[in-house]
């Protein structure tokens, strides 16, 4: 309503001035130049930290601390990467994270698909109450769970295990709601036809619903994987005595503390850490962007 009123006001103002040619909206040359100038400056500012990371990681130790700093390296060397590899078990961190993030993602896909199907296609006792209870957990900030969950983990004797990093995050309410939305979007006739054919819930879910909800699954998978790959706070708390099971972010954070003054090494380690995710992102950009936009929109 408000907006329509404002449109009215705009047009009143417009009539007073000279009518603008309709073509103006394609953009005056000046507007185009300004747009590009702004985007270019902003783009350079956004890209610079990546450039600086990469360039530093390829500089010799001496050049890294040379004054004034060199914007373009004089000599390029891969030695820093080899040294990082020797100084800390980054390959192991990497494999740990693939295992942890992979298990969490797979777990979330399975638990969320099952629960979403129950909420989408089944009538059962206590359904609304459960739905509201699950919805309410979305409001709980992670910081509140940190201490009780850590104490739970110690009671289970799961400190310093992969289990501690995987099991608590194998179910995800956002995933359930998103997949439920997708399942509700599948025409009811398909479900009825499946019932007539003597199809059970599991068969329908795996043969009919999941293949049709592929894009929903990829949203859940990407968001979960990214969150798990980039997590620091929880691993920091539950992994203290077994450095060999550290995920990569914890490995990098520890490396940064220990080798903080050797910037060429820290930058090489940072590059190694973000490389897999950046590569995945560049390969599947559209899915990434769509998924993350949706993750905010909460289905």
């Amino acid at each position: 309503m408000a907006s329509e009123r404002q449109v009215g006001r705009q047009s009143a103002e417009g009539k007073r001035g000279a009518p603008a040619p309709a073509l103006a909206r394609v953009g005056s040359p000046l507007g185009g130049i300004l747009t590009h100038a702004f985007l270019l400056v902003a783009g350079l500012a956004v890209a610079f930290p990546f450039y600086w990371m990469l360039v530093t990681s390829l500089k010799t130790p001496a050049e890294t601390t040379q004054l004034p700093p060199t914007l373009f390296p004089q000599t390029l060397t891969w030695d820093n990467y080899a040294e990082v590899w020797r100084a800390a078990p980054f390959a192991r961190y990497f494999l740990n994270t693939v295992f942890i993030a992979g298990s969490v993602t797979l777990g979330v896909l399975v638990t969320a698909a099952l629960a979403a199907h129950a909420f989408a296609r089944m009538r059962f006792f206590g359904r609304q109450i459960l739905f509201i209870a699950l919805l309410a957990t979305l409001m709980i900030p992670f910081e509140v769970l940190l201490i009780p969950d850590y104490i739970l983990i110690t009671r289970l004797h799961w400190e310093d295990t992969y289990l501690a990093m995987i099991v608590p995050w194998m179910a995800n309410v956002f995933g359930i709601f998103l997949l439920r939305q997708f399942f509700l979007g599948i025409p009811g006739e398909l479900w009825e036809a499946a019932l007539l054919d003597g199809c059970g819930h599991l068969t329908y879910l795996f043969r009919v619903a999941l293949p049709l909800a592929r894009s929903g699954l990829s949203v859940v998978a990407i968001v979960t994987f990214l969150g798990s790959w980039n997590a620091l706070l929880w691993p920091l708390v539950v992994v203290t005595r077994r450095p060999e099971i550290r995920p990569i972010q914890l490995g990098l954070a520890t490396f940064t503390t220990e080798f903080g003054v050797y910037f060429h090494l820290v930058m090489a380690a940072a590059t190694l850490t973000i490389l897999p995710v950046v590569a995945l992102f560049l390969l599947a950009q559209r899915q990434f962007v769509e998924s993350i936009a949706r993750s905010g929109v909460k289905g």
């Binding site: 902003a42 783009g43 956004v46 890209a47 930290p49 990546f50 600086w52 990371m53 530093t56 990214l226 790959w229 980039n230 620091l232 972010q249 990098l252 954070a253 940064t256 903080g260 910037f263 820290v266 930058m267 380690a269 940072a270 590059t271 850490t273 973000i274 995710v277 950046v278 992102f281 560049l282 950009q285 990434f288 962007v289 993350i292």
Partner: peptide, 20 residues
């Protein structure tokens, strides 16, 4: 793509770069 890149980059790695 460019503007979105920092968002997929881990905060730990990005923080190390900015610290530098």
């Amino acid at each position: 793509t460019l503007f979105f890149l920092p968002y997929v980059t881990s905060l730990v790695a990005a923080a190390a770069v900015w610290q530098w």
